[in-house]
């Protein structure tokens, strides 16, 4: 076989026009700032909603006249606080290490997808379930304790909304978990690199 000469194709490759201009430091700084702002706002909203729920429960505990309601609010508060803590712990953004080699980076990315999938799959257990005792106690008060709502359709309406929210959330989480799984499968199909 003659000597391989791939210099012309390399030169051709490097000389091709890609049609996408490079970016300046100021533009990249501006755009990443925008993305960070959007991310921070979303976090503030999530944390803010949780803090509002905690504050609301605290007010009920302090002001409600009936011990049943106080206990239900306390259970809700504990459940919500636990859920928020778990949310922060489990969804802490992972940092990629750009200094890792490509092979290590792909393996790392796959592990991170698995972690994300597991968050979606188990959300009900550590986020929804801890709030169940408080919700059940509060609904129990509305169904059987509160003279204003006992025997009316109001508690059924609340229960219906809760069940609907639960079903929609579960479907959404299953969909997101399946989405992660498909990406994991695609990555697995690419094969683990030999070292």
């Amino acid at each position: 076989m003659t000597e391989h000469n791939d210099a012309p194709i390399k030169a051709l490759w490097r000389a091709q026009s890609t049609g996408v201009p490079a970016m300046s430091v100021s533009y990249v700084r501006h755009r990443t700032g925008e993305l960070h702002r959007a991310f921070r706002i979303r976090n503030w909203l999530e944390q803010g909603a949780g803090l509002l729920a905690l504050a609301g429960c605290s007010v009920v505990i302090l002001l409600a006249p009936h011990p049943w309601v106080k206990s239900a609010a306390a259970l809700l508060l504990i459940g919500a606080a636990y859920g928020m803590w778990q949310w922060r712990r489990r969804t802490a953004p992972f940092r990629t290490d750009p200094s890792e080699s490509s092979a290590a980076s792909l393996s790392f990315y796959k592990r991170e997808l698995e972690r994300k999938r597991d968050i979606h799959r188990t959300l009900w257990r550590w986020y929804v379930l801890p709030m169940a005792p408080g919700v059940i106690a509060m609904l129990g008060w509305n169904f059987f304790g509160d003279p204003q709502t006992r025997g009316t359709s109001a508690p059924w309406g609340v229960l219906g909304m809760l069940v609907a929210w639960l079903v929609v959330s579960m479907i959404y989480e299953r969909y997101k978990a399946a989405q992660c799984q498909r990406e994991i499968d695609a990555l697995s199909a690419l094969g683990e690199p030999e070292r």
């Binding site: 890792e100 490509s102 980076s105 792909l106 990315y109 498909r182 990406e183 695609a186 690419l190």
Partner: peptide
């Protein structure tokens, strides 16, 4: 490394 890692993730997502 940074460029190829980002590109590999992009390819994986697109392949899915």
């Amino acid at each position: 490394r940074v460029a190829h890692n980002m590109a590999a993730r992009h390819v994986t997502r697109r392949q899915r």
